[in-house]
Design a protein around this nucleic acid. Structure first.
Length: 227
DNA sequence: GCCCAGGTGGGTA
DNA sequence: TACCCACATGGG
């Protein structure tokens, strides 16, 4: 059967925030524990978080590979190259001029906060650290939360386009609601630990890529039971 | 050729 | 505050 939008009857039931734990259990059972963000080091994760803004991950991989081949995927190396050279290396990730500027603002931030030592950055307390990241030009809430969760080990739930798509279709929160509204819904409902936040977002990505696509495949989706 | 992809900041009403 | 738009490449 061709992929289709949720049917009228499927739209009837609205997911409640109290069910978010149950949703996670279903996804984990379907996909297994993901424990995830593609990246070998915290620095690579943070760079990837900027490069993936509104961009397919496959394109980000090409940019990361370019940086690795050129031996520029470190704080010190990136500090030393020009904006032009950086932009060319990350070209496959799209918006390369914009992202080169954003990466350089991020490097300035690292220099100011911890001299590029992510172990030191990790020691800084929340929510102060989140506020500092959000003050960096080019780092919005999703990028900040991805960095906090996947690179710095902070319990900060990530809301992305996938999260909004899946859970707005299930009637949890309107898709147009503000980022912080979405984040509060998940944070209040999930008093879980770091690993839960990490894996939950990974499960969301898996679900959206496989089932809750632009044209949804509800028939085979593990979450169809919640409609 | 067209659509889409793990956002963000600046401009305008 | 709430939209609208620019920013760009690569895969399906």
């Amino acid at each position: 059967m061709r992929s289709s939008k949720p049917t009228r009857s499927q739209k009837k039931r609205k997911l409640k925030s109290a069910q978010l734990g149950e949703v996670y259990a279903v996804l984990k059972k379907s996909f297994g524990h993901q424990a995830w963000w593609p990246g070998d080091t915290p620095f690579e994760v943070m760079v990837g978080a900027i490069l993936t803004q509104n961009t397919a991950w496959t394109n980000v991989e090409k940019a990361i590979l370019n940086l690795k081949k050129a031996k520029k995927l470190s704080f010190g190396a990136l500090r030393r190259i020009s904006k032009k050279e950086l932009a060319q290396l990350i070209r496959p990730a799209g918006f390369f001029n914009l992202k080169a500027d954003r990466l350089r603002c991020f490097l300035d931030f690292l220099d100011r906060e911890c001299r590029g030592d992510l172990q030191k950055l990790r020691l800084k307390a929340m929510p102060d650290l989140r506020e500092k990241l959000l003050a960096v030009k080019g780092i919005g809430p999703e990028t900040a939360d991805s960095m906090l969760l996947y690179a710095l080990g902070k319990r900060s739930f990530v809301i992305d386009a996938y999260t909004r798509r899946i859970f707005s279709r299930h009637g949890l929160v309107p898709v147009t609601a503000h980022y912080e509204t979405w984040r509060e819904v998940f944070t209040r409902a999930l008093p879980g630990d770091l690993d839960l936040y990490n894996d939950y977002h990974a499960q969301i990505v898996r679900t959206a890529k496989n089932y809750c696509r632009k044209a949804p495949r509800c028939e085979s989706c593990p979450l169809c039971r919640f409609f």
